[in-house]
């Protein structure tokens, strides 16, 4: 599988990153098989979080068996120094490892949170202490909030090594700064910050719960994922050709093998084909009158 430098971290990540949230919906035996499947496909970058049910625990055995083959990302939603450190220790314990290669501020949504984590007593203090102690190698941030907020975070966190952000052809087709994750990507690439893409496989929202109850949804994702090979492949190709370092799979384990296959067969996507996908989805979704042209 193709690898690319993860910003200036010195690590070359595969073009697909394994989102280990998928393990949460498997029993231990299935989780072990899933990790082997992902490693067999050549994936070398894993991402997990303490909020993904018991994914950390289920990842543990195979992670420890293959620790040298895996660049491990983890994250915390805690925003203050003590809470973040406690969560880091807990993750190290649950995963059963001594170090985490990339520790990320998880799900930044509001400016006030950015104020908190960057201030004295904020979570980043715990990240930096852990780095000094050798528990953590790199510092990252994940967000699907306003691109301006992410850009602000890039400005304010000097030692930021990676960003995790949405990259989706439906969103890419929309104007307005609130959809402009490409500006974030551009900036990250200028600054040598590695980038990990989420939401690549989002196909739309679920029907309202009075039409389709949450427990009747066929996938665990909070969005409706694309689920044919053709769609999965073009979504993967779009995200992987957008300037991202690596693309994270949809969280549902039923989709992982298909996404691995798309990643293994990735051969790039040129601008005309990228626009073709954006246009097709834009017209599918368009609220404006029927059009004859593009």
């Amino acid at each position: 599988m193709e690898t690319r430098p993860l910003g200036d971290t010195g690590h070359d990540s595969t073009v697909m990153t394994f989102g280990a949230i998928a393990l949460n919906w498997l029993e231990q035996e299935g989780a072990d098989q899933m990790v082997e499947l992902v490693l067999d496909a050549g994936v070398n970058h894993f991402d997990v979080a303490p909020t993904y049910g018991d994914a950390e625990l289920k990842l543990g055995p195979k992670l420890r068996q293959h620790r040298e083959e895996i660049f491990l990302g983890c994250k915390t939603q805690e925003r203050t120094v003590d809470a973040a450190r406690a969560k880091l220790d807990r993750s190290l314990d649950r995963l059963g490892v001594d170090t985490i290669d990339l520790y990320q501020v998880h799900g930044l949504e509001y400016e006030e949170e950015l104020d908190t984590i960057t201030a004295e007593g904020g979570a980043l203090e715990a990240f930096r202490d852990a780095k000094a102690e050798g528990l953590v190698d790199n510092i990252g941030l994940t967000s699907h909030a306003d691109p301006d907020l992410i850009l602000d975070a890039v400005d304010r966190i000097d030692d930021l090594d990676t960003l995790m952000l949405p990259m989706n052809p439906v969103v890419a087709g929309k104007d307005g700064d609130e959809y402009d994750y490409e500006a974030v990507l551009e900036r990250a690439n200028e600054e040598g910050i590695g980038t990990l893409g989420i939401k690549a496989f989002a196909g739309g929202s679920w029907p309202p719960t009075d039409e389709l109850a949450q427990e009747d949804r066929p996938y665990c994702n909070w969005y409706r994922p694309v689920d044919t090979y053709e769609e999965v492949r073009e979504r993967f190709d779009f995200a992987a050709s957008s300037g991202l370092t690596s693309v994270i799979n949809a969280g549902d384990p039923k989709l992982v093998a298909m996404i691995l296959d798309a990643a293994r067969n990735y051969e790039g996507m040129d601008d005309a084909a990228r626009r073709s996908l954006v246009e097709r989805l834009r017209h599918d979704d368009s609220p404006v009158p029927e059009q004859l042209h593009h």
Partner: peptide
């Protein structure tokens, strides 16, 4: 565009 997506619409 290559290919041109002639959508259902």
């Amino acid at each position: 565009l290559d290919p041109v997506p002639w959508t259902g619409r």
